[in-house]
Design a protein around this nucleic acid. Structure first.
Lengths: 190, 190
DNA sequence: CGCCAGGCTGGCACTCGGTGCCAACCTGGC
DNA sequence: GCCAGGTTGGCACCGAGTGCCAGCCTGGCG
């Protein structure tokens, strides 16, 4: 059961996130300092870094938890699905953004136009990859150990996710994201 | 013609790179401070940052120039090649690592095991992507503007490069790299 | 009720990467 | 021999992130 501490922590976390995102969207990520954030949020600098390990984690914090979830969803797919369908279905089973629809687009744009955010986003994808490859490898019946086939498929699928997100941002969010992802996978498989 | 200054600059650059890589390989990238590097290299801290914009650029500096080269090599491929072959041939036409063979492996390993280096490496790949997509798009006869197909193919090809590099590192460099890349592309296309 | 343990907070000082600025210097051309 | 322009190193500074410590608040126990 969540203790009072836990609830307080969760509340502070979401409050600070809200305030910080307002600032980021208004004046840019790099142009906003931690000091501004903590001043607006009414929290001490030191405590801030206990809630968010890095500045980027304000925006990308939940990406950490998504990796294992993705791996789990992939493991749960029926074993007669080919890798690509399994990955696509697993991806669509993930919880969508924790942000309201209108903010989600602005945040995606922020991530894709801010170097440090994009870099950290890539790091998280690398972590997903480490979680997904063994699962896919088992599903493909490959022996353990480094396997180029499983690694390439997972890397390519994640690349499609990024490509879809990028085009989604570039086109102003008009085309629905899952359709773009599907098209991306179709494109690399002819 | 290269003036005396240019030659001096190039010399200093390579000297500092050598010294720094020795330190990185001996005690790790994050465990080595800029102050240690400049002390060992006999250069001032301030001048160091004029040669290398960031610490990561000591290791990944040449990746910047490789992007346009890649795009140029792709544009030079005969137009009857399919995108994947064209990309593969273009990639193999790129100048190989500026480091001697034995160091190249150690450095690749360093890059793939150091978060900040891997992040910066991903940023450079993103830059390559921006350079490659328009070229591929023209070759595929697509109209200008964001196109999911070209974007996905380039992103997937770069992902294959990374996957190949990763497996190459994981297997101790035994399998030749181009073969791994070829296998990676084959794997995602069945 | 009082007390103690353990987690949370905020402040301070510090490290490290990176930048702006400036005075001193060196190279090359007139 | 002098002047212009690029170079160097030193200094002060900024922003992100960490270790440490003292004070506080919560919850459990006698």
């Amino acid at each position: 059961m969540p203790t009072l501490w836990d609830k307080t922590r969760a509340l502070v976390h979401s409050q600070v996130t809200d305030v910080a995102l307002d600032l980021f969207l208004a004046q840019g990520f790099e142009e906003t300092t931690i000091d501004q954030v903590v001043a607006s949020a009414g929290i001490s600098r030191r405590s801030f870094f206990r809630y968010f390990g890095t500045k980027e984690d304000i925006v990308l914090g939940d990406a950490d938890t998504l990796g294992p979830l993705f791996a789990e969803a992939l493991a749960a797919r029926p074993s007669d699905e080919d890798p690509w369908t399994a990955l696509e279905r697993a991806a669509s089973a993930l919880p969508s953004s924790r942000f309201p629809e209108d903010r989600a687009f602005a945040i995606a744009k922020l991530v894709f136009t801010t170097p440090s955010l994009r870099a950290r986003h890539a790091q998280k994808h690398a972590a997903w990859q480490r979680a997904l490859v063994p699962v896919l490898q088992r599903r493909m019946g490959t022996a353990d150990g480094p396997d180029i086939r499983a690694t390439a498929i997972v890397a390519a699928a994640l690349a499609c996710l990024d490509a879809a997100r990028e085009v989604w941002v570039a086109t102003g969010g008009t085309t629905p994201f899952p359709a773009l992802y599907h098209e991306a996978v179709a494109a690399i498989r002819d």
